[in-house]
């Protein structure tokens, strides 16, 4: 497990070692939903826009 900074509040967000590109994690401090972006060895987190017309339960 590694950590990345939340782009909103800069708290540390845990990223699983086997994270999948596009995986969603929540910032433990501000609760913002973040999407993990993988590019080679590099891991970043960015705010996610979740809602599409037929999404959800």
């Amino acid at each position: 497990m590694s950590s990345e900074k939340c782009p909103d509040c800069e708290a540390l967000v845990s990223v699983p070692d086997d994270a999948v590109n596009g995986e969603i994690v929540s910032c433990p401090d501000c609760g913002l939903d973040l999407e993990i972006a993988l590019a080679g060895q590099e891991r970043t987190v960015k705010p996610v826009v979740l809602e599409k017309e037929d999404w959800g339960e």
């Binding site: 699983p16 086997d18 999948v20 596009g22 995986e23 969603i24 994690v25 929540s26 979740l50």
Partner: peptide, 11 residues
Amino acid sequence: DQIRPDERMLI
């Protein structure tokens, strides 16, 4: 289509 915390829990 997207790994949410729910799917992470399944993994």
